[in-house]
């Protein structure tokens, strides 16, 4: 049975995917066919290096923001568990405000008000800061619920074998939280990549801003934005696949 089921499943997998791809292709080719649009890919090809540059900036910004948001999320999650109440409430306020307001507004306020007041002029620094504060709030909640999912009996066992508090976090709590965190974290990384497009409003020269500029130079809107979509998918699709693989690998029953 087992030997038979595998190839059948694979065939079904291929056929189903082909079907979906055909359907999507049909819908879009019809839609684009109705458009009577004069394509001008040559003008875009001329700016290929600009696209590449923007794409690389987006990758770099997102990677930096992911690392920074991990640190912020971790600190904020620990702060929310702190016995020192002002610290705990500060973390609650941070998480609720950031999750309750649009990223666009946060970027504008951070850049035009906060960064301006503190004399931070580098818009890339402000951009990474805005993205990581935003993602950090979501990560904070993920990390907190991960920590809280560790049963008391495990903390008790850790105490009984003589681990200190720090050792307990290092060897018992964090390894399990990380395993739980990896799949949503990869999803969060995909979000950061897409959200980074909003940094175009403070003139950070990332992927979206470059596409907008090419559009302004060439008046070729679709030719500018379709590569943009493809460029984001090139990043987010592998990440989403990776997330699924990791989810399977780190899965263990408790």
């Amino acid at each position: 049975m087992q030997a038979h089921r595998q190839p059948v499943a694979r065939a079904a997998w291929i056929v189903s995917w082909c079907l979906v791809a055909l359907l999507v292709a049909a819908v879009f080719s019809f839609a684009f066919g109705q458009l009577h649009y004069g394509w001008n890919w040559q003008a875009i090809w001329h700016y290929r290096e600009k696209f590449l540059h923007g794409w690389l900036v987006t990758v770099a910004l997102s990677a930096a923001a992911l690392l920074a948001s991990l640190a912020i999320g971790l600190l904020s999650a620990l702060a929310r568990r702190s016995a020192f109440l002002p610290l705990r409430y500060a973390a609650v306020l941070y998480v609720e405000i950031v999750r309750g307001t649009p990223l666009l507004v946060q970027i504008l306020i951070l850049f035009y008000v906060v960064a301006n007041a503190f004399g931070i002029e580098n818009r890339y620094v402000v951009g990474v800061l805005a993205l990581s504060l935003f993602a950090g709030a979501y990560l904070s909640e993920m990390i907190r619920s991960g920590i809280e999912s560790i049963r008391d009996s495990q903390l008790e066992s850790a105490r009984a074998i003589g681990l200190t508090r720090a050792q307990t976090y290092r060897h018992v709590v964090f390894p399990q939280v990380v395993r739980q965190l990896v799949p949503p974290l990869t999803g969060q990384f995909a979000s950061i990549i897409k959200d980074s497009s909003l940094l175009s409003i403070i003139a950070v020269s990332e992927f979206t801003l470059n596409a907008q500029e090419v559009n302004a130079f060439t008046y070729s809107t679709l030719e500018s934005y379709l590569p943009l979509a493809a460029g984001y998918l090139l990043l987010t699709l592998p990440i989403s696949l990776l997330s699924r693989v990791l989810e399977r690998r780190f899965h263990f029953a408790t």
């Binding site: 009996s153 850790a158 263990f252």
Partner: peptide
């Protein structure tokens, strides 16, 4: 050396 009712071991 202390042993409890259950769930002594770390699942990961």
């Amino acid at each position: 050396g202390t042993v409890f009712q259950a769930y002594n071991l770390f699942p990961h």
